[in-house]
Simulated assay, not measured.
Amino acid sequence: MPDLPAVSPIVRPRAVEDIPAIQDLMRRVYPPPHGPEAVWGAGNLRRHLERFPEGQMVAEAGAGLIGTSTTLRISRELALAPHTWSGITGAGSLATHDPAGEVLYGVNIAVDPAWQGRGVGRLLYEARLALGRRLGCRAFVAGARIPGYHRHAATLTPEAYLEAVVAGRMFDPTLSKQVQVGFRVLGLLRDYAPDHETLGHAALILLEL
């Protein structure tokens, strides 16, 4: 395991100056076979800050950026209806952001592989939930990746896999942790986003604020 800075990570608002470091981080988080579209473009990152600056955060330790998260606001009706990642995020541009939306929607979260399992993702989630409460949002919703599904796809439908994870009979590296911190799984989002581990599917998760 690589040596890590002997400092506690902090979460702060994203700044324009962070864009190159965010792109470097996302390349580490999404190596091949993820395609280049998994890395935010610089123009897109600037648009995020223009459309919803308070919803964009980074985590850092010392001088290094070790995590990033992206959110938008949207109506509860749209958030809980069947949707794809591209459709609900405006293909990642946040063009769908509604400043009056009662739901804070989790567009993306990424943690440096060297820091995964060290609580950075939890810090980013706590900061996003605190933001939602501060803005008066009623819930946090996201399409949660189910990266363990590809190992069971030959024998289980994605719906059956979700049921097993929620019941605790199977462990999923992402969804199990979200269930443990209080998220409810409302159902499956089929063909949510291209992903070789999830086979494109995601769990629709909700936490009331």
Rank of each mutant, 00 (worst) to 15 (best):
I19N: 08
R46Q: 11
L131Q: 06
E37A: 13
G182F: 02
E159I: 00
R190W: 09
D3F: 15
T96R: 08
P32S: 10
Q180W: 14
A6P: 13
Y30L: 11
L65C: 05
R118E: 06
A81Y: 09
I66R: 07
E159A: 07
S93K: 04
P36L: 09
E50P: 09
C137L: 04
E50Y: 09
G67M: 04
G43V: 08
H34F: 15
I19Y: 10
V103S: 05
Y161W: 05
L162Y: 01
V141Q: 05
A202D: 05
N44Q: 14
A6H: 13
A142I: 03
R134W: 08
N108H: 14
A193M: 14
D18F: 06
L129G: 13
V39T: 08
Q23E: 12
M26Y: 15
V58W: 06
E54L: 12
F183P: 07
G55P: 03
G182W: 01
L209W: 12
A160T: 01
V181Q: 12
V107N: 01
E197D: 11
V141C: 00
Y161G: 00
S8P: 14
G90R: 02
F52V: 00
Y105L: 06
F183I: 05
A193K: 15
Y161L: 02
P147K: 00
G117L: 06
R133F: 04
Y149C: 02
V185D: 01
G148F: 03
E50H: 09
A142T: 05
E50R: 11
G90E: 01
S69K: 12
G136I: 01
V58F: 08
V16S: 14
E163N: 08
G92Y: 00
D98P: 07
E159S: 07
E54R: 11
T68N: 15
H201R: 04
A79D: 07
N44I: 15
E60L: 13
H152R: 03
G55N: 04
T155A: 03
A142R: 07
Q180L: 15
L129F: 14
R28L: 15
I205L: 00
L72Q: 10
I109H: 11
S176D: 05
R27D: 10
H196R: 12
R51F: 09
T89Q: 05
L135Y: 00
R14Y: 15
P32C: 09
V165P: 04
G90D: 00
G92D: 05
A202V: 02
A6E: 15
T71S: 15
H97G: 05
V11H: 05
I66W: 06
I10Q: 12
T70Y: 15
I88R: 01
M26L: 15
M26P: 14
V103F: 07
R151T: 05
R14N: 15
